[in-house]
């Protein structure tokens, strides 16, 4: 062994205590790092898989009212893959033992109970019966926040009418992994929840028979959002913005502004905007969720 090599080993041996401590610190640092990295990877993978398995939509469009037969027109747009029309609404909820105001976002389930997009993962219970208009499925975080279980009841003010609802199931939805009220800085599980009811029940309550006010769709891999200008079709039905509707440019701007959100949510992010709608002169909430097509492609 060369003299200088020997010097190295001897001096390392002389400070073996320190060397050991440093090695330990570095090792545990690296181990922790690897642990977190793999946690992040597996969370990312789980999220991607969940979004894929439960058919998370690429594009969300919110409008005032459009006839159901418009569905085929949207479907014909180049790049649009699967599509589902829905009826969505906001309702004040009345939860026993909770005096503050609670908002529920009601989403329709097709009458056959088969959601095409944003499918539900039922944690407990079942979906509402097709003919029942007082049965709901609620999202898990909301249920946990109020300690609600299947067969529990609460009330909702649906289109001005007070209605008693029975919980039939607790569910997870890729749409509501992080459920936030528009303008909120952080999720509030106690004051904001998602409710799923049969389409028939909501349509009746909101006078939406043969119509829809919400469309979710997936794009073909590689399709660009700018190619899919739903706006042209839905604009006159109160969808999106009249003055400068959400075209590719707006989405681009939104993407830039939503930089932080991209950070938070990785490749999928939620962009919620309060848009002024000309026709109704009221603030309408527009959720636009956008999945990068490359990601969809990889799955």
């Amino acid at each position: 062994m060369k003299a200088l090599t020997r010097k190295l080993w001897r001096e390392l041996w002389q400070m073996k205590g320190r060397v050991f401590a440093i090695t330990l610190v570095v090792t545990s640092g690296v181990a922790t790092f690897i642990m977190f990295i793999s946690t992040v990877h597996s969370l990312e993978f789980t999220r991607t898989k969940f979004c894929h398995d439960y058919n998370f939509a690429d594009v969300f469009v919110n409008l005032k009212r459009a006839p159901e037969n418009l569905k085929d027109k949207i479907k014909d747009i180049n790049g649009v893959n699967q599509l589902e029309t829905r009826v969505c609404a906001q309702a004040k909820l009345d939860i026993k033992g909770f005096a503050e105001s609670v908002t529920g976002k009601i989403i329709s389930i097709p009458d056959d109970g088969k959601l095409l997009l944003n499918r539900l993962y039922i944690r407990k219970g079942r979906l509402p019966e097709p003919f029942r208009d007082d049965e709901v499925v609620i999202n898990e975080t909301f249920a946990q926040a109020h300690n609600l279980n299947p067969s529990d009841q609460f009330a909702a003010v649906i289109n001005g009418k007070w209605k008693k609802l029975t919980i039939t199931g607790i569910a997870l939805s890729p749409e509501d992994i992080l459920l936030m009220k528009a303008g909120a800085m952080s999720p509030d599980f106690k004051r904001y929840g998602a409710l799923w009811m049969t389409r028939k029940a909501i349509s009746k309550a909101y006078d939406m028979d043969g119509a829809f006010n919400d469309v979710v769709l997936t794009l073909y891999p590689g399709a660009k959002l700018s190619d899919v200008i739903i706006d042209n079709i839905l604009g006159r039905y109160g969808g999106l913005k009249k003055k400068g509707s959400i075209l590719a440019e707006d989405v681009g701007k939104g993407l830039k502004n939503a930089g932080d959100e991209i950070e938070k949510f990785g490749k999928k992010f939620l962009l919620s905007e309060c848009l002024e709608c000309d026709s109704c002169q009221m603030h309408q909430l527009c959720f636009l969720t956008f999945t990068f097509p490359e990601v969809t492609q990889q799955i």
Partner: peptide
Amino acid sequence: ISSLTARE
């Protein structure tokens, strides 16, 4: 070099 012998 203090960690080496005379010979080293």
